[in-house]
Simulated assay, not measured.
Amino acid sequence: MAEIMIDRGRGPEIDGTRITVYNLLQSFLDPTMTGGEICRVYDLTARQVAAARAYVLSNPDTVLAEHLKIEAKMEAGNPPEVQEWAERAGTSFRNFKRWLAERQAADHAEATQTRPGRVPTFREWLVEQNGRSSFHSRLGD
C-alpha cells in the first residue's frame, strides 16, 4: 500500500489526489465514522483509505506532531496584511455587484436595446472605476 501514499512537499498524501493524511486524521479519530463514510465524503476508494490509515498507524508521533502544528497555525488566523487584502477584495466585489446591478437596470430601462442580453465584464467595471491607465498599470500592460 506504500505506493498509494506519496509526499510532494505538503505531507503524505494519497497519490492522484490532494488529500493528505492530515485531512483524514479527524475522521480516523472519530469512532462514529466508518471507512465507507470516509470513502464517500472524500471520494476515495477503500484501498486509498486503508493506505492512509496504515500510514497514520505506522507513523503516529510524526503525524500527530505535524497535525498539532497545523491546528496551531489555523488557530492563529491570517496575518493582518492578509486580512486587510481580503477586506479590500470583498469591498471591490460588493462595489462591482452594485455597479453591475445599476448597469443592468439602466440597460433594461433603455427603450431601444442595442446590446440585448450582454452583461458587462469585471474588467469593464475596473476600467470604468479606475481609468484605463490605472487598470493597465496593475496588470503590467
Rank of each mutant, 00 (worst) to 15 (best):
M1A: 14
E3R: 12
I4W: 00
I6G: 05
I6E: 03
D7F: 07
D7R: 07
R8F: 08
G11N: 01
P12N: 08
D15E: 12
R18D: 10
I19S: 02
V21W: 00
N23T: 08
D30M: 03
T34S: 09
T34Q: 09
T34Y: 09
I38D: 01
D43G: 13
D43F: 12
D43P: 07
D43C: 14
A46Q: 08
Q48K: 05
V49T: 00
A50K: 08
A51D: 01
R53E: 04
R53K: 10
A54P: 04
Y55Q: 02
Y55S: 01
V56F: 00
V56M: 02
V56Q: 00
N59D: 05
P60W: 01
D61R: 04
D61M: 07
T62I: 06
T62S: 08
L64Y: 02
E66T: 07
L68I: 08
K69G: 00
K69M: 03
I70C: 00
E71V: 03
E71S: 05
E71C: 05
A72E: 02
A72I: 03
E81F: 13
V82N: 11
Q83E: 13
E84K: 10
E87I: 14
F93Q: 15
F96Q: 02
F96S: 03
K97T: 15
W99I: 02
Q104A: 06
Q104I: 07
Q104T: 08
D107I: 06
D107T: 11
H108A: 15
A109G: 06
E110Y: 12
T112E: 15
T112F: 15
Q113G: 11
R115V: 13
R115K: 12
R118A: 09
P120H: 05
T121C: 03
F122Y: 13
W125E: 01
V127A: 04
E128Q: 13
G131W: 09
G131Q: 05
R138H: 15
G140F: 03
